[in-house]
Computed example of a mutant assay.
Amino acid sequence: MESDWRQNLVTTSDGIAQLLRDTRRIAVLGIKTEAQAGQPAFYVPEYLHNAGLDVVPVPVYYPDATRILGKPVYRRVADVPGPVDMVNVFRRSEDVAPHVDDILAAKPKAVWMQSGIRNEQAAQRFAEAGIKVVQDRCLMVEHRRVAR
Rank of each mutant, 00 (worst) to 15 (best):
M140H: 08
L9D: 02
D95F: 01
E2F: 03
G116C: 02
Q114G: 01
I26S: 06
G30Q: 05
Q36F: 03
A35K: 13
A147T: 13
Q39A: 10
A51N: 08
A110W: 06
D85M: 02
M86L: 15
R118T: 15
D79C: 04
P57K: 12
A105P: 12
D136F: 02
V89R: 00
V89I: 10
Q18T: 14
K132V: 06
P45W: 07
Y74E: 05
I117S: 03
D54T: 09
D22C: 13
F42H: 14
S3R: 14
A37H: 14
N8Y: 12
K132P: 02
I103M: 03
V58R: 01
P81Y: 10
Q7G: 02
I117T: 07
P98R: 04
N88M: 10
Q39I: 08
V100N: 00
D14E: 15
R75I: 09
V134M: 08
R76W: 00
R92A: 11
A65W: 07
R67S: 12
Y43A: 10
C138L: 12
M1S: 12
G52A: 14
D95Y: 00
V87G: 01
E128T: 06
A27T: 08
S93E: 04
P40Y: 02
V80Q: 03
V100F: 00
T33L: 04
M86V: 11
I16L: 08
V56Y: 05
V84C: 01
V55D: 06
N8V: 02
R118Q: 13
R92E: 08
L9V: 14
A65I: 11
H99C: 07
S3A: 14
Q7W: 02
A78S: 13
V96Y: 01
G116W: 02
L9G: 03
R92Y: 11
Q124M: 12
A97D: 13
R91I: 01
Q18M: 09
Q114D: 03
R118Y: 06
